[in-house]
């Protein structure tokens, strides 16, 4: 008798721990429907348009000198901004999660701020600083230093826009982790750097990698802010996203979407790679 009640309770408990099948199916359907509608469809359209005139047209759009120059500039921008913002993200996360100090929530908010600044403004502020009419305009002119409408301006605007990504990923995780392990290592006499590389880094590496990937994706894809500081000189100061817009306005649909497909492709490949890595890791 009591055994029966026991099993009954067990099944009831089991039921309370798992979603009923209809809920499960329903939720998966909603989620996938939403993803298909808002993500797959746009992605599909990008690919469809990119290949609408065949593989050769796609390839020649990509190998065209202006596209190549844009791709190179985009890569360079990402290569400068991502490491800088990564170092910053780690330092900021370390300071914020490992110590108590006044103005901490203000600092956290300020780090988030670039997320919420309109891309148009993110570009304009650099024009206000370094433009010919800007704060440093005359000095820069006199010394023939080009910032706006040249690579440095594009890099600065991208730095601004992608500023919070790594820090945003690390802060909650490191807060959650606590610092017992690190304290233990330190009290055993390990140096600060050694503790960081052998204790902290292995613990945060996935979040870090993830933040880096997101930062990279955004650095390559940023449009609004870069558009303001670029000057749109073909083959010179057009990044890939700007090149996409230029091609689209040239009525070169294949060229435009071929460029867009690279950006989308880069993001997806890196993210699939990342989840494969994670998967392997969890198997071990």
């Amino acid at each position: 008798m009591s055994a029966v009640i026991q099993t009954k309770n067990n099944t009831k408990q089991q039921a309370a721990l798992h979603d009923p099948t209809w809920v499960r199916t329903g939720l998966i359907a909603i989620a996938l429907g939403f993803i298909v509608l808002f993500l797959c469809l746009p992605l599909g359209l990008v690919l469809f348009e990119a290949f609408s005139k065949g593989w050769t047209a796609y390839w020649s759009a990509l190998t065209q000198p202006d596209t190549q120059a844009a791709l190179k500039l985009t890569l360079l921008t990402a290569l400068v901004t991502v490491p800088l913002n990564t170092v910053f993200g780690i330092a900021a996360a370390w300071a914020i999660t490992r110590f108590e100090f006044k103005g901490k929530s203000l600092l956290t908010t300020l780090i988030d701020l670039p997320f919420s600044v309109s891309p148009v403004i993110s570009g304009v502020i650099f024009v206000l600083l370094f433009g010919a009419q800007g704060v440093f305009g005359e000095w820069l002119m006199a010394h023939d230093v080009k910032i706006i409408f040249a690579t440095p301006g594009i890099i600065l605007a991208t730095l601004f826009v992608t500023f919070p990504f790594v820090a945003r990923q690390l802060i909650p995780l490191m807060q959650e982790m606590g610092n017992e392990e690190e304290e233990a290592a330190l009290s055993l006499g390990a140096s600060g750097w050694k503790t960081f590389f052998q204790i902290t880094l292995p613990n945060i590496k996935w979040a870090l990698l993830y933040g880096v990937l997101l930062c990279n994706a955004r650095a390559m894809g940023e449009f609004g802010a870069v558009s303001v500081v670029s000057g749109h000189i073909r083959g010179m100061t057009n990044t890939l996203p700007l090149h996409v817009e230029v091609s689209y306005n040239d009525y070169d649909v294949v060229g435009a979407f071929a460029g867009a497909s690279i950006l989308a492709g880069l993001a997806i490949v890196t993210l699939v790679l990342k989840s494969l890595l994670e998967w392997k890791q969890s198997d071990r």
Binding site: L32, I35, L39, C40, P42, L43, V46, P119, L213, L214, A217, R218, M220, G221, E222, F223, G224, L240, P241, V244, E245, Y248, A256, F257, A260, L263, A264, L266, A267, I268, L271, V272, K274, S275, L276, W279
Partner: peptide, 18 residues
């Protein structure tokens, strides 16, 4: 895994393309 990777597409796709 594929759907999971797709979530970040809006970050990567230039807003003009979107």
């Amino acid at each position: 895994r594929f759907f999971h990777a797709l979530i970040d597409l809006p970050f990567a796709l230039p807003t003009a393309v979107a």
